[in-house]
Design a protein around this nucleic acid. Structure first.
Lengths: 131, 131, 131, 131
DNA sequence: GTGGTCTAGACCACC
DNA sequence: GTGGTCTAGACCACG
């Protein structure tokens, strides 16, 4: 289910954060659905529980999940909170990457196609009016 | 000329790589133009020459510049050849970021507007974040 | 009546303690008034009775309520006696928070306004956060 | 220098965060001043380095310090960033505590005196116009 | 030498 | 059983 590259320069917990974020964004993991427990996942991936927890905590800080002491970790509702600053960061990152892509020869049309593709994958736009 | 953020969590050499990449992409530094020497730049930025070295090496690996022993480092021509694999990586990164942006509430229209904006201003300045 | 946030990082019993404290402070629950029974409240909130118990015990320790075996739990009269030490703790906490607020840029005037506001509306509703 | 209560229910790293925050707010530790290194402090307090690091990381997330990989940890400039949301939280907490204090018998005058006291300790108001 | 990551294994609080 | 904290000790990346 998760393919972690133990040799990668990118820390394991960051890889985990990314993978889980992706599952949440693509709604494979739905709102309020329970994530695998720290220990279970640790065992499955043969990784130290602390590493899993670090990933979960990071996801919690970023607003993607919430954890309840004796119960488990769960997916937060989308657009839950205060993503204004996060939005700014993501937009900047996108600008940077888009520039690089175009320098490498990607056309604007290709990019637009990608966007439309994602738009269907996610399931259409999400209403959000706090920006 | 370069504004490095000593407080950033991102290593200095990575910041350097990004800044230089940006200058190359926006064609402030043109094909076959010579980059400042390691020592000069180190002195200017009051930074350890090893750090500059590392950045230049990284840019060389990524195909943005080439070095000639005893002469210096120069900007590689765009679309040099090895961009196929890089393109795939960049595209993947873009997909990831676009998905995240949309999950956070950015609409497809907004993103398309951004793309068109870059398409026209390619060659202008691009802002960088500090993470 | 009670809106508990199951997603909060704060344990449920602590949330209960705070809510009840608030009701007592704002005199929605008056001196010697009986609190809802553990079982009733547990049923209403669809929460484990043990959790309610724990909250009531905590409130008793803090001097806000008293329990009579076989009868129930009741609101203690204000300024009951043991408030000297509690007062010290609360004052210390306030100093800490006020310092932090000012460090973050709140002016003394703003704070004084807040105090006056409470002074007049004491007996009105107070909003709680979820951390 | 630090008096940590190893037996307290409050996690050691949180105690550390509070102590350090206090030192920063009262400007005992000034902007860009270096904090003791993770290992040094761990040794001094006979505490595990990981625990210190957790505290430092938390302070970094909260915007009070910044850390640079091979150099050390340093105090962030005051009102550096995006404290809007933090401000709201702190204000709510203050309202709650002030209410409790007044219920316990503290007068508005006493509270105002406290504010003025802090105002001189910190060194006057800090200019800040992003709220 | 610095911060950052990871492991192995223990204990606690919550429900 | 769950998440959260802490320890002891190892290794890596950075400058």
């Amino acid at each position: 289910m998760f393919e972690l590259d133990i040799r990668s320069r990118k820390p394991i917990y960051e890889q985990l954060v990314e993978k889980l974020k992706e599952l949440i964004i693509t709604e494979v993991l739905k709102t309020d659905e329970q994530l695998p427990s720290v220990r279970m996942l640790a065992q499955q991936l043969t990784i130290n529980p602390n590493t899993i927890q670090k990933a979960y905590r990071e996801l919690e800080v970023q607003g993607y999940i919430y954890s309840i002491k004796g119960k488990g970790s769960f997916v937060s509702p989308a657009s839950d909170g205060l993503n204004t600053e996060k939005l700014l960061k993501v937009k900047k990152d996108i600008m940077k990457l888009l520039s690089e892509a175009m320098y490498l020869g990607v056309t604007a049309d290709e990019l637009i196609t990608m966007i439309k593709e994602i738009n269907t994958t996610i399931g259409g736009g999400i209403e959000n009016d706090q920006n």
